[in-house]
Design a protein around this nucleic acid. Structure first.
Lengths: 218, 218
DNA sequence: TAGATTGTTAATCGATTAACAATC
DNA sequence: TAGATTGTTAATCGATTAACAATC
């Protein structure tokens, strides 16, 4: 997807981290925080934190720092967590179920409206009180229920077909866990979670580390 | 974790993608590929691809391009996929089960040696032929079985304790799915998969897109 | 007020892209 | 050989860090 905003993805991907750490601070009843303190917690530099936040406005106060509650709320709003998103999960396997059962998403406004699967044995069942539908009806369901986000938890060989159904039904975004890229119109946001890429990175770092240790021996 | 290698993480994180696309090409019986063709497939620039590959050696041939089989094997080796890693999964919930059942990892050398859980009802069961142990025994199991990678699929409130047991047992890397950071000695590789950060990024982009469309109306 | 800390500009650093000579 | 495409250097671009005036 093409983006028109001036905010770089590097900044955008740090926002959820700020949000998470501010939630922690809130939970611990901490009322104010400086960029320096945030730096210690997050591992980002204080300078970067101030730069990032200033992309969206001057949330701080000279000599004081940031009000935790206020900043948390501002970032929630920036992230679009102040509204409801309708989602469907496609693929009722372990991964799909893991997401259905993860209440944190629902608490933050992501409502699962239905689950879809090809397996006729699963169709009609309920998982965490959400009905499993036949994937045949995916496109029409998406269209008729104003689904915003389609979550793909199918095997690789199904994901393109599913993505097309989601796109035709009118989703605005696809969250894809299948280990493959999906091809959809440019205006649809696609976020891939490629677990194997993450694991292979671990593998690379392990090997690198081992070679380093080996070379140190001599 | 601190790194000593000169290869930047930006490059490292592209390697699994190259690996995946080359697997596809191999599967389609394609024997040679140029950086330009790879560019079309991957979306990276041809220049970047050549730069990336040259961090590790001159795998190509002027006037010809790259031999797909050869390059695939080279990258496998660079990623450390030419050896076996012993892993344990901690947390036998849906996510843990999803990973156990995902044969792709096993095929690439990541062998699940055991699953751990706190729930006494699960202890002793087998999931995909792998025994579920009591999390009490995690540290000693890791030590006695030469576990390389610990995979954390527990809720947030358990993950630090689990990470410490893994670290004390002697794992070299932790793959963490809990929505929280873990604190372990610097020499241990930690790779986080924070799903909510990924979803919140989607949410941000949705909101951005909506605001853009709104502003275009006027 | 004095001290602290932001918001913001300028400097630096690193990553990506462009260009092209080398060479298959 | 001529054409194609790499490997590699140099140029550009973007992101991070440093510095400090503004100001609470």
């Amino acid at each position: 997807m093409e983006r028109f905003s001036s905010i770089s993805m590097a900044v955008v991907r740090r926002l959820p981290k700020y949000h998470r750490y501010l939630s922690e601070l809130k939970k611990n009843d901490i009322k104010r925080v400086s960029s320096q303190e945030l730096s210690k917690i997050t591992g980002f530099t204080a300078s970067q934190i101030r730069q990032d936040l200033n992309c969206f406005g001057g949330f701080g106060q000279q000599g004081y720092g940031y009000n935790v509650d206020d900043l948390h709320q501002q970032i929630s709003k920036i992230l679009g967590l102040d509204r409801i998103y309708n989602t469907v999960i496609v693929g009722a396997g372990n991964l799909g179920q893991a997401i259905v059962n993860y209440t944190f998403f629902e608490k933050n406004g992501f409502v699962t409206k239905a689950i879809f699967d090809v397996n006729p044995k699963l169709v009609g069942l309920k998982i965490n009180d959400i009905k499993v539908h036949d994937v045949e009806n995916l496109e029409s369901f998406v269209r008729e229920n104003g689904i915003d986000i389609g979550i793909i938890c199918t095997p690789k060989n199904q994901c393109q077909k599913v993505a097309e159904a989601l796109a035709n039904g009118g989703v605005q975004a696809i969250w894809n866990f299948a280990p493959s890229d999906v091809n959809v119109p440019e205006e649809i946001i696609v976020e891939n979670v490629h677990l194997s890429e993450s694991l292979f990175t671990v593998s690379y770092l392990l090997k690198e580390r081992e070679e380093l240790l080996k070379s140190k021996k001599y």
